[in-house]
């Protein structure tokens, strides 16, 4: 565990907490893509199945459980408890166009052709693009609430910090995993446009609004 990895995990944790608190406090999930949240639940489920097969550390186990619970908790709030506030008219990204290529790619490019490895690889590929329905929703409505912007910033920063972790590990431990690295680069690049708007607008106290 190095500092980039730890900060990455904390940023990820912060993101899911911001999202849950936003929905809970405002009693509304307006502006949040339920489709992205479904994809994230699929990502954590596919990746953390190894909870039942291998024990790594207390930290590892606790974080996995937190991400799973937070993810399904978010789905519960969006699709059951605060269902009436879900903005489904603007949440129209076709997720099968993301899921199917990820399934095919995971079957073709993986470390080992076994069920758990393919599911792990699928989760890595799917995570890299899971935010697209959310970014599509923001572009469709042309704006995002500040709290939604903070959520997106923390979530985007998390994988960016993992990239620094992998650079560090390449030099310090001679370790690298191309599947995770390439997917992590794709994932971080997808946020670049948003990062630019966040830094130039939201941090200056303005609402995130896209140019017309």
């Amino acid at each position: 565990m190095n500092i980039f990895r730890l900060l990455g995990d904390l940023s990820h944790l912060l993101a899911v907490i911001i999202l849950l608190l936003k929905i809970w406090k405002t009693r509304s999930c307006a502006g949040i893509s339920g489709r992205s949240q479904i994809l994230f639940a699929a990502v954590y489920t596919a990746r953390y199945l190894d909870l039942v097969t291998s024990y790594i550390s207390a930290y590892n186990t606790v974080m996995k459980i937190v991400f799973l619970v937070a993810s399904y908790g978010t789905l519960y709030l969006m699709f059951l408890k605060f269902k009436a506030t879900y903005d489904h008219n603007h949440d129209t990204f076709r997720i099968e166009f993301l899921v199917l290529p990820c399934v095919i790619l995971a079957l073709l490019i993986n470390h080992d052709f076994s069920a758990l490895e393919i599911l792990w690889t699928f989760s890595i590929y799917l995570e890299s693009v899971a935010i697209l329905p959310q970014l599509f929703m923001v572009s469709k409505t042309g704006e995002a609430e500040s709290i939604t912007s903070h959520y997106l910033f923390a979530l985007g920063t998390y994988r960016g910090l993992y990239l620094f972790n992998w650079i560090y590990r390449y030099y310090a431990e001679d370790h690298y995993d191309l599947i995770a690295i390439i997917a992590g680069i794709v994932q971080t690049v997808l946020y670049c446009d948003f990062f630019y708007l966040y830094i130039t607008k939201v941090l200056k106290g303005k609402k995130l609004q896209l140019p017309a």
Binding site: R5, H12, N60, F67, H175, D177, I179, A180
Partner: peptide, 10 residues
Amino acid sequence: SESERDKDEL
């Protein structure tokens, strides 16, 4: 070493 996944990463 090359391309082995680390089961500790989240």
